[in-house]
Amino acid sequence: MRRILLLIVLSLVFACSSKKETLINYTNSQIEYSGRIDSSKTKAAELYWSGTSIKFNFEGESISALLKNEKGDNYYNIIIDNDSLFILRPDTIKRYYKLASKLPKGKHTLEIFKRTEWNRGKTSFYGFKLEGNSKVLKKPISKKRKIEFYGNSITAGYAVEDLSGKDSPDSTYTNNYLSYAAITARHFDAKYQCICKSGIGITVSWFPLIMPEMYDRLIPKDPNSKWNFSLYTPDVVVINLLQNDSWLVNMPENDEFKARFGTKPPNEKYIINAYQQFVSKIRKHYPRANIICTLGSMDASKKGSKWIKYIRKAVDHLNDTAIYTHVMPYKKSVGHPSIEEQELMAKSLINFIKENIDW
């Protein structure tokens, strides 16, 4: 009987030891972060912006991430070995989420990619847990190219997965990974940073914040939280704005119109100057970057649009040979760009970069 009990105890000990756990703190130098991530005030990496990502190389049978979401309304693409993908929605309780299990022996890659926008609340990432015979591998080789985008809902990938075409506000359907911006970055194997918000404009937005007020923030909602531009120096900057301005400047009864303009809509000179000033701010932060001022693919970009002319005039005034204008194909369908339309935009932008920029 004692012998049987001893065998049982030994088998339990062996079973426990076979499930060895390795904890990796969010500060581990082999974790690669992309995007504007805050880790200065809390014991976690805090994710806000669309397209923010976490990449990690490892050996192990399974991997989990310790996460907590502010509102429980954010979605992430979990990509294992650059192949399998599933969607994770962290809740408001700090806990481990199993990202992969029963993995074969050998090297594995993990990417956590933020699909949703910052108004859905921040996500706190505390670290990973590996199980089995595990090993932390060197982080991915740093990409040679860097690209940065400033945009609105089109760049965010708003409602891109709403196949009904009804532009559902449910964050389930927003996916920055399928936006023209992220597709372009992946095509060039470039590190990616995206500063965007649905409804935002240069002169007026659908809410009390415009891009010239938001573009330099680390924490989107905090005007006192400033991003350190020296931490990320892009080779190419793409600005895709004015779509929301094109609607709102014609809505004198709108509260944001009244707050920005009073009773009279802005004239051509005002709009061109505002756009020019914003591009100048970007240029001051990135003296050597190639800047592409683009528009598309909704109605502000259709043939004959005065908004295209505004952008071209602003760029002409800047007299900078490294600042370009490019209009993406106008989509004739209603609503925000679909997956296919985002792909067409990406193709247009990719071709433009190939033809004009040596990076």
Score class of each variant (00 low, 15 high):
Lys19Asp: 07
Leu349Gly: 06
Lys129Gly: 00
Lys166Arg: 13
Val238Lys: 09
Asn250Tyr: 12
Asn57Lys: 13
Tyr330Pro: 00
Tyr177Lys: 15
Lys143Ile: 03
Ile63Arg: 07
Pro287Ser: 09
Ala300Phe: 13
Glu70Asn: 05
Phe58Gln: 08
Glu21Leu: 12
Ala185Glu: 13
Glu131Cys: 12
Arg145Ile: 10
Leu344Arg: 14
Ser64Pro: 00
Ile239Gln: 06
Thr92Gly: 07
Glu111Trp: 00
Asp235Trp: 04
Gly72Trp: 01
Ser225Lys: 10
Val204Cys: 10
Asn77Pro: 05
Pro104Lys: 14
Thr263Arg: 11
Asn267Cys: 02
Trp307Leu: 10
Ser297Gln: 14
Asn228Leu: 04
Lys264Thr: 14
Lys122Gly: 00
Ala45Ile: 05
Val237Asp: 05
Gly35Lys: 02
Phe14Val: 13
His285Leu: 12
Ile282Pro: 03
Arg95Ile: 08
Ala185Gln: 10
Lys331Ile: 14
Ser34His: 13
Ile4Met: 11
Leu88Tyr: 04
Leu23Tyr: 15
Lys129Ser: 10
Tyr324Asn: 07
Lys166Val: 04
Ile54His: 10
Asp38Asn: 15
Asp235Lys: 12
Ala15Met: 11
Gly132Met: 07
Val9Thr: 11
Thr109Met: 10
Phe14Ala: 15
Tyr270Ser: 13
Asn25Gly: 10
Lys143Pro: 08
Tyr232Ile: 06
Ile291Ala: 04
Asp91His: 03
Phe149Pro: 12
Ala181Asp: 06
Ser50Thr: 15
Glu131Ser: 15
His285Cys: 09
Thr109Gly: 10
Trp227Arg: 01
Gln276Met: 12
Ser62Tyr: 04
Tyr177His: 15
Leu248Ala: 05
Tyr180Asp: 09
Thr172Trp: 01
Val315Arg: 08
Lys197Val: 07
Leu248Gly: 01
Ala159Lys: 06
Pro252Lys: 01
Phe229Asp: 04
Asn74Ile: 02
Gly151Trp: 08
Asn152Pro: 03
Val136Ser: 04
Thr184Leu: 07
Tyr96Pro: 00
Leu110Gln: 05
Gly262Glu: 10
Phe149Glu: 09
Lys71Asp: 01
Phe58Lys: 06
Lys144Trp: 03
Met298Arg: 15
Leu231Lys: 15
Asp170Trp: 02
Thr294Asp: 09
Trp49Thr: 08
Val13Thr: 11
Glu341Ser: 12
Cys196Lys: 04
Gly72Pro: 05
Arg36Gly: 06
Asn319His: 14
Gly106Phe: 11
Trp206Lys: 12
Asn290Met: 05
Gly296Pro: 10
Glu32Tyr: 13
Ala100Gly: 12
Ile147Arg: 08
Ser18Pro: 00
Lys309Gln: 13
Asn273Val: 01
Asn290Pro: 03
Tyr126Leu: 09
Gln193Ser: 13
Met214Tyr: 15
Leu130Pro: 12
Gly35Tyr: 02
Arg217Gln: 03
Ser53Glu: 04
Trp227Gly: 00
Tyr275Lys: 08
Pro234Leu: 07
Met251Thr: 11
Tyr192Glu: 12
Phe56Trp: 05
Ile195Tyr: 04
Glu253Met: 09
Thr172Phe: 09
Lys68Pro: 00
Asp216His: 06
Ile357Gly: 03
Ile8Thr: 10
Leu137Phe: 05
Asn25Ile: 02
Met1Asn: 12
Gly132Ser: 08
Val204Tyr: 11
